[in-house]
Lab assay of single mutants.
Amino acid sequence: DEVEIEDFQYDEDSETYFYPCPCGDNFSITKEDLENGEDVATCPSCSLIIKVIYD
């Protein structure tokens, strides 16, 4: 799936974006990952991944 970065929750302390996963955990991707060109957020509890859409 693809999710807009605006739909993520941002945690300023950890500089990490979170998005709810269907399994009950959260996908996460850090601001640093995005700045380095990464665009895939992973869920630590299951095998799902999502593509992050940002400009």
Rank of each mutant, 00 (worst) to 15 (best):
C46P: 00
E32Y: 09
G37F: 10
E35T: 13
V3F: 12
N26P: 09
L48A: 10
S28R: 14
D33G: 11
D25W: 04
T16V: 09
F27L: 02
A41H: 06
D11S: 12
V40T: 04
C46I: 00
P22E: 15
L48H: 08
E35C: 02
D13A: 09
C23E: 05
D39K: 15
I53L: 09
E32M: 07
Y17R: 03
E2P: 13
E38Q: 12
E35Q: 11
F18R: 06
Y17N: 09
I53N: 01
D11P: 00
S14I: 15
K31A: 05
G37E: 10
E4M: 08
Y19A: 03
Y19P: 00
E2S: 15
P44K: 10
I5N: 01
D1H: 01
Y54E: 06
D33A: 12
E6F: 08
L48M: 10
Y54D: 07
Y19W: 03
E38M: 03
L34W: 09
D7G: 05
F8L: 08
S28Y: 08
I50T: 07
N36G: 13
D33T: 11
D7V: 08
S14R: 13
Y10I: 11
Y19S: 09
T16R: 14
N36R: 14
E2Q: 15
C23M: 02
F18W: 11
D13Y: 10
D7H: 14
D1A: 08
D13K: 13
N36S: 15
I53W: 02
Y54K: 14
P22Q: 10
S28K: 15
D7C: 05
G24A: 11
L48S: 14
F27E: 03
S28T: 13
G37Y: 08
C23G: 11
E38S: 08
T16E: 05
F8C: 05
G24R: 08
E2R: 05
T16C: 04
E6S: 07
D39W: 15
T30A: 01
P20G: 05
K31Q: 03
Y10N: 03
Y17C: 05
Y19N: 10
D13N: 15
F8Y: 03
I49Q: 04
T30I: 01
Y54M: 04
T42P: 04
D11Q: 15
P20H: 07
E35K: 13
F18G: 14
V3H: 11
S45K: 04
Y19C: 04
T16G: 14
G24I: 02
D13S: 07
E2T: 15
V3K: 02
Y10S: 07
E15M: 06
P20D: 02
F27Q: 14
V52R: 01
S14G: 08
E35D: 02
N36I: 02
P22V: 10
G24L: 06
T16F: 08
E32D: 02
